[in-house]
Design a binder for these strands. Structure first.
Lengths: 225, 225
DNA sequence: GGCTGTGAAGCATTTCACAGCG
DNA sequence: CGCTGTGAAATGCTTCACAGCC
């Protein structure tokens, strides 16, 4: 990817898969959305769906869904559409979500606590298997894990073979935390702070940026209000 | 914008400004990032910067910064670069961040609490001026605000003239909450739930989707790990 | 007959490269 | 002389439209 493989707002770059043509990152980022809708359909016992109907529930065009999927193979049947269960499994597989992933959480303040207790992580493939913080919370028992100190990040992450780091610390410490995670072998970072992390090209960073989202929405708001 | 003016992952559409050519939404979404870097530079007492240096700190190309800014006017001086303070103020103005915005928060669980207590909102133009929830928390005093019940959303939002809603409730209630916010006059929604909200075209919706971000990063991870 | 998968066209965004101003 | 602002080129993404399979 481009310069530092950073912020998803900035890097729209593609990634050259092992073989074949490069798959646009924007396509990869849509797959989780497809997955969610498909999962919801499964729960409603919908077993089959065509691209038109799927597009309608997701809010994209049918052509886009077909094109997106075509990067990865042929998952539908002409005249029929897609088998919901099958397509769900295939996307899970493409995204490597058909296996568990251990994650390290750094920062156990309000945000970190919300992340740990957020139910949305549970039905997914992600386990928080190490928590780090400064101050009082160190030593505390959370979800069967003892909160460790920030100095242990590199060693612990390396020992546990953790590849995914979640950063929920104040902006000023973010880069230092990222450096430690990367030193321990982390190659994917979810960053909750409004800071652009500098990372080597093999490390993927995605930002969660609610304030930026709000700041960009006000552009569209009518003045009076 | 396209169909329902929804999810930022889906809608890359542009918005026709009052006059002139349409400004791509992706440009609008980069402005907050520029703003942050500029603010940090100000704090370091950097008073002037050229597009090359600015690009370096942000992680984009210099041409992109110049092009992005050119949609809104001419803010630099040839041979000199940009005055940091001036450019900061201009972008604030473009995004309408030079005035306060009242926001309604719906959902006061772990996530909602993290949002309220998140320091990052404070130095920005956003005030949470109404909080809604179900259950025990109703009536509780938070930051000088009494948590109201969800049934009050439409009326309260209309009374206070609130234009921005923040949704931090479980997925199953999201659409109903959005409908009430919109009925009360909200035209910008920040949605923390992994659900695509259906909203009329004049309502802007942005998603905060950490799980989606993680699920799309695993695509790039090496298998062994 | 209906719907997928996909060339080819159409748009949108980024980057190049340089005229021209401070 | 350096750097902005911007036409024009290049690249990337989405949509059209239809051949061909089920």
């Amino acid at each position: 990817m481009t310069p530092t493989m950073n912020n998803f707002l900035l890097d729209e770059g593609a990634y050259a898969g092992e073989a074949g043509h490069p798959i646009p990152d924007i396509v990869i980022r849509r797959l989780p959305i497809y997955l969610r809708t498909l999962t919801a359909l499964l729960e409603q016992n919908v077993t089959s769906i065509n691209s038109e109907e799927l597009a309608e529930s997701i809010g994209v065009t049918a052509a886009q869904i077909r094109r997106d999927l075509s990067y990865f193979g042929k998952f539908g049947k002409q005249g029929k559409g897609y088998d919901v269960r099958f397509l769900t499994d295939e996307i899970h597989h493409i995204l490597q979500l058909d296996r568990p992933w251990n994650c390290a959480l750094v920062g156990y303040g309000n945000l970190g606590q919300a992340i740990v207790h957020y139910g949305g992580f549970v039905p997914t493939s992600f386990n928080i298997s190490a928590i780090f913080d400064r101050n009082e919370t160190i030593g505390q028992l959370v979800n069967g894990l003892i909160v460790k100190e920030v100095d242990d990040i590199t060693d612990t992450v390396a020992e546990l073979g953790i590849k995914i780091g979640i950063i929920a610390v104040p902006p000023s410490s973010v880069q230092a935390i990222a450096d430690r995670l990367i030193a321990g072998g982390v190659t994917a970072i979810l960053n909750y702070a409004p800071i652009v992390i500098k990372a080597p090209a093999h490390v993927m960073v995605r930002e969660v940026d609610p304030i930026g989202a709000m700041q960009s929405m006000t552009y569209y708001l009518d003045d009076r209000g």
